[in-house]
Amino acid sequence: MRLSVQEAAFDLGAESNAFAAAVSGAGAVVTFTGLVRDNGGSLAAMEIEHYPGMTEKAIAAMMDQAMARWSLADALVIHRYGRLAGGEAIMMVATASRHRADAFAAAEFLMDYLKSRAPFWKKEIGADGAAWVAAQQTDEDALRRW
């Protein structure tokens, strides 16, 4: 299990390959990547703020829950903070399991929890000013299925 909360960009291909290569006994690897939407070109940048200390603890707890609930060989979460441009990768989740159902379910679970329970806040910087991204009720509702 690996967790990295970092400012630097990450190499999606290299991270996915390293994750798949290190895992043993798995027949399935699922990866999800979140990108900065450029809103049709109107976005100048996205600023992501987080709560150092709590962020790592909260995500580690989610990953522990996922490992306990599904039959996973391994899990990886990388989440960035700081100033990102449109199209850049914000975060990625990877899960590995013997069969694909566990890896898919655990990746969705981790994504739903990262959205609403990991202490990150996004601010969109546009040509006409900046605005904090509002949390969506649909994201909160998504937690109920788990």
Binding site: G34, Y51, M54, M91, K115, F120, W121, A134, A135, E140
Partner: peptide, 10 residues
């Protein structure tokens, strides 16, 4: 103690 708006990770 920390105060903040609803989180928007992912």
């Amino acid at each position: 103690v920390a105060f903040f708006p609803p989180m928007t990770g992912g």
